[in-house]
Design a protein around this nucleic acid. Structure first.
Length: 291
DNA sequence: CAGCCGTGGGG
DNA sequence: TCCCCAAGGCT
């Protein structure tokens, strides 16, 4: 394996010249802004997050501002980012921060991890990017870069392994860990991409184990492909879009028209209610959640 | 822990 | 066109 210093210098130097000018990385970005960006960016491309993040920061500049709203407003202004449960959890997160942490986003990894919607990755990212903490930030980009550069494999394993964590922590510099983390992530996002990696532009090309091995294709079974058309997820999306567009309770008939299969439609609607994304009122109308 | 949870753009 | 997948988390 390559000397960590060599890796650090190559990646950090590349980042110096190629980092995107993203608003949540700006000097005036708040920990709250960083947290909101991290939740929005889960499974969602940067270009789609940007306009929604700006709107949220203007509307709810602090956790307290969001905490004062109904949860349904968070879901409404989530727009079409997808996985709307994230909006619900972010709202719950804002209330927990307001009620239990004096309105300040925690800097401690374990404290962050205990908040709704914040898992291992997001806790590390916020502690690192917002507060300069020293944590291994293991997202899909970082895992892919390490899989290739160090393990000579095209893709990392399905689930994050203990070996991956050990490697990431062993590569963590004593100083500047936060910048290192965001730099590796950026490299994975812009150069060491999943499909058509731009090895010609990669600062690690000369030391990348995967490239030096001739870029062997991923061995083993292909990853699970989930069909979306006709799925409960698509149905839920249709139903929730109706509730977001309406600024009050909608009659059930307005929901019935967006999906033909009544059995599936009822199941999806029940699911939305069970998840807290929708509320059923007494008069057989539905709306975004209040609480 | 494998499956579920949205959405839209690029190859 | 169709398929892949994009800063995950939760059960």
């Amino acid at each position: 394996m390559v000397e960590p210093h060599l890796l650090h210098n190559a990646v950090l130097s590349w980042y110096e010249d190629n980092a995107r000018d993203l608003p949540w990385r700006a000097a005036d970005a708040t920990p709250w802004g960083v947290l909101v960006s991290e939740i929005m960016l889960q499974q969602t491309p940067v270009v789609r997050v940007l306009p929604v993040w700006h709107e949220w920061m203007e509307r709810w500049p602090t956790p307290k501002d969001l905490a004062a709203e109904q949860p349904g407003e968070a879901v409404r202004h989530w727009g079409r980012l997808g996985y709307p449960r994230r909006a619900l959890r972010l709202h719950a997160c804002a209330r927990a921060i307001t009620d239990e942490h004096g309105g300040e986003v925690p800097a401690d990894h374990a404290t962050l991890l205990a908040l709704p919607g914040i898992g291992e990755y997001t806790a590390a990212a916020v502690a690192s990017f917002a507060y300069g903490g020293r944590h291994a930030v293991l997202d899909t980009n970082v895992r892919r870069v390490f899989a290739r550069a160090v393990r000579a494999e095209e893709y990392p394993p399905t689930a994050t392994s203990a070996a991956e964590r050990r490697l990431a922590e062993s590569l963590l510099p004593e100083l500047g860990a936060a910048r290192w983390g965001v730099a590796v992530m950026e490299l994975g996002a812009l150069v060491c991409t999943a499909r058509a990696p731009r090895c010609a532009d990669c600062p690690l090309a000369q030391v990348c184990a995967w490239r030096l091995a001739g870029k062997p294709p991923h061995a083993g079974p292909a990853r699970k492909g989930q069909t979306y058309a006709g799925s409960d997820r698509q149905c839920r999306g249709r139903l929730l879009a109706v509730l977001r567009a309406a600024h009050g309770p909608v009659p059930k008939a307005a929901l019935d028209v967006v999906w033909d299969d009544a059995v599936q439609r009822e199941r999806a609607l029940d699911g939305l209610v069970a998840d807290g994304l929708a509320e059923a009122l007494d008069d057989d109308t539905y709306r975004l959640p209040h609480a």
